[in-house]
Design a protein around this nucleic acid. Structure first.
Lengths: 113, 113
DNA sequence: TCCTTAGTTCAAAATATATTGAACTATTGA
DNA sequence: TCAATAGTTCAATATATTTTGAACTAAGGA
């Protein structure tokens, strides 16, 4: 009943970077960062893509070790693995989130970059 | 006689991350970081791939704004755009380089991750 | 001038990633 | 029990990225 997540030593730098090197996933992470503490389900991200496409991107984030997804009924509760990432790659997530927040919303979403 | 480089505001976060999300390019950046101040030509990176393949990867790094490539005779002198990246995305490159240095050399090179 | 060296370009092939819609599962509320 | 809701999976397609080798350019040195 719970989804697979990599443990700390299975989180790879190159994979984290390539997974975050995508506008949609960067937008999701920015949104999570802006709403830390609030329980986020997949539906909250609907502005970033179709249901089926988000399912794909959210799985990539989980499999890379960037997010944690807890099953709760028919919902999934998604959160950033901040502490894990901070201990594995100190400063990395903070600098990415800061840079992502500085982008205008449109650029965060824009796909044609 | 000089190659095109993006200027500061043309450097995009998603692009930097996706370009660095590759073992070969991460290895090149780690090597540059470990040898800052030393003039590096393409040939120095031969351990990371074939001549033609490196030409491709080094162009990606340059086009993303991560490296600067100066033409010098038949050679190219390649360096990290540290100050530019630091001002655009504070802390990002440092955290990536630190994390990349902590990897064992084999993992830095491994392609089957 | 001729040869060598350093690196680029091109086009083809291989591989990986992203997007879609239809069909599906599981939970929940009426 | 039935229908609705939340999300997943599958297979197909579309698209992008990587890798390769052969042919190329431009600069130096003998």
């Amino acid at each position: 009943m719970s989804l697979p997540h990599p443990n700390l030593d299975q989180i790879s730098l190159a994979n984290v970077l390539s997974v975050l090197g995508d506008q949609t996933r960067l937008a999701v992470v920015g949104y999570l960062a802006r709403n830390e503490g609030v329980a986020m389900s997949c539906g909250q991200f609907s502005e970033f893509g179709s249901k089926t496409n988000l399912s794909y991107h959210l799985a990539k984030l989980r499999e890379a070790g960037i997010t944690r997804t807890e099953v709760s009924g028919t919902s999934r509760l998604i959160s950033l693995r901040r502490d894990d990432l901070d201990s594995r790659f100190p400063g990395l997530l903070d600098s990415i989130i800061t840079a992502a927040q500085d982008l205008p919303a449109l650029e965060r979403l824009r796909d044609d970059a």
